[in-house]
Structure formats: C-alpha cells, structure tokens
Design a protein around this nucleic acid. Structure first.
Lengths: 129, 129
DNA sequence: ACTGATTTTGAGAATCATTCTCATTCTCAG
DNA sequence: CTGAGAATGAGAATGATTCTCAAAATCAGT
C-alpha cells in the first residue's frame, strides 16, 4: 500500500480541500469531484486522503459521529478552532497549551506525550445572543 | 429515545467499565458481559452507554479508527492521559489549558467555545529507552 | 513511438461499528 | 391479577471506510 505519487486525481483532491474553507468529509470531497465532472472513484479519494495525512499536508479530525473530516493545513504543529454553525475553521497555535501538556505528562511519569486538541464554538458571522 | 432507567443491565455495564482501568469499546463491554454469563444484547449496551455519557457519568473518545471508547469518570470537567502501550488512563485537570482555550476563542471572535483534549504517551510501567 | 513492467484507478463487494425495528418480557401501580 | 408503558435483545438496516481485481495510465529503456 505504497503512497500514490502525484497524479491528476491527487491534484483535484487537493484543490477541493483548498477551496473548502473548513473541514470536509471524504464523501464530500468525492461528491464535489463528481459535481465538477471528474469521475474519480471513492476508493481513490480515500487513498489520497490517507497519503496526504501521512505527509502532514492534510489534517484529520474524527468527529463524534464517527466520520473523518479532512482539511488542508500548514505542515507545522497547530490546532483548529472550528465554528459549529458554518464549519469555518482557523488554525491556532497556543504555546501555553504545549507547555502545560508536556508538564502534566511528566508529572504522571509518562514519556513521548502527544496531544490532540480541538476547539469549537460559534464564530462572529452568526447572530449574537 | 428516553434515557433508560436504572436496571440490572445498566448496573452490569457500569461494573464492567469500573473494572476496566482504561477505555473500552462498546463491543468490548458487550463481549465481557457475554463472557460473564449475562445475555445482554448489543443494542442495550449502546443504549445505556449513550445514556451514561449524556449524564456525564461516562466519557467517550472516538479513536482515529472510528470506534468510540468509553470510560467511567468523575462528573467534573477534566481530560485524560492515556498510555498507548497498556491503555491505562489517568484523569487530569489543567487550569492553564482551560484559560488558554477560552482566551484564544475570544481572540478570534468565537463564543461558546468548547474544547476536547486527549493526551497520550507511554507510562512508567514500560521499559524506558 | 513500441514494449514490457509497474503503478494507479474505479466499480462494486466486503467489513465493521453503530442504529433501528419490533415482538417479547419486565415492572409496577391500582 | 391486570394492563400500560418501559426495557430488552435478535437480527436487519445503515453508512463510512477498506478491499479486490481487472482495465487504464505511466515510465524506462530502446
């Protein structure tokens, strides 16, 4: 299951992810490709998505509903703040959190500590209470 | 889909979760109940697990593989530090993170900001490098 | 360009966790 | 004891993801 090289399909998939400004489901990507006329198969979409994630060019978040959501992103370490109303998401970097996570891990005798952080809320494009 | 009241099945499920000292899959819970002789059905396990989560008596984490993992926990706000080797997990509370998350949300114009944090690493019960 | 070898593709089948359906069983008040 | 409503559990249904495999695209060397 070697990582597929660069192909037109991969470029199309990356284009869709770049165009969406929030996370989208693999199924979404597939549907949009179809809508644009590309006859790309579902299996191919999953293959490339997995490869892109492996390369760090795309982020995945498995939502509580059990589906994976993908989003193209910068390669460096960061987290996402996603709007629950419109799906728009922003990359954020919070040093305080990085430090706190490392410290807590050490306090409990854990090493090689990794963390996953997802922030969600309602962005200012929606009516305030 | 009203929450099921307290029943022998629910007690059995809570017992299994309490006995495991890490997260377990709904399927795991079901298998263990079967192994113990209870003829509890899978649907019932899912129903109670969902209800317990709703009540805040149990935590869920949807793992990257797309399966939900459950663990009984204290009702108050906290996060988990889980060992990737043995699955043992510890509840942690990190004020610095709570504050940082709230601040970042505000900075980007988001309100009602929630966060999900998962910490993982290798605990001291395993050979050090 | 032509050949052969290798990789990628895509349609549909196969998986697997989770949810739904519904007839049966339980619980409890009266 | 009786009846209403809640809970149960077996199996079907769903839906996302993965696998299979034959056909199509790509590439190196000529």
């Amino acid at each position: 299951m070697a990582a597929p090289r660069d192909t037109p399909q991969r470029r199309a998939i990356e284009a869709v992810l770049a165009a969406a400004d929030g996370f989208c489901t693999a199924q979404d990507v597939h549907a949009r490709l179809r809508a644009e006329g590309h006859g790309t198969g579902l299996a191919t979409v999953y293959r490339h998505l997995a490869a892109l994630v492996e390369q760090g060019r795309v982020d995945v978040v498995t939502s509580p509903g059990g589906e994976a959501r993908y989003r193209s992103c910068s390669g460096s370490h960061h987290h996402h703040l996603t709007c629950t109303e419109c799906g728009r998401s922003v990359e954020v970097r919070i040093d305080a959190i990085e430090r706190a996570c490392a410290r807590v891990g050490a306090e409990h005798g854990f090493r090689d500590v990794h963390h996953t952080i997802e922030l969600s809320g309602v962005c200012d494009a929606h009516p305030a209470p």
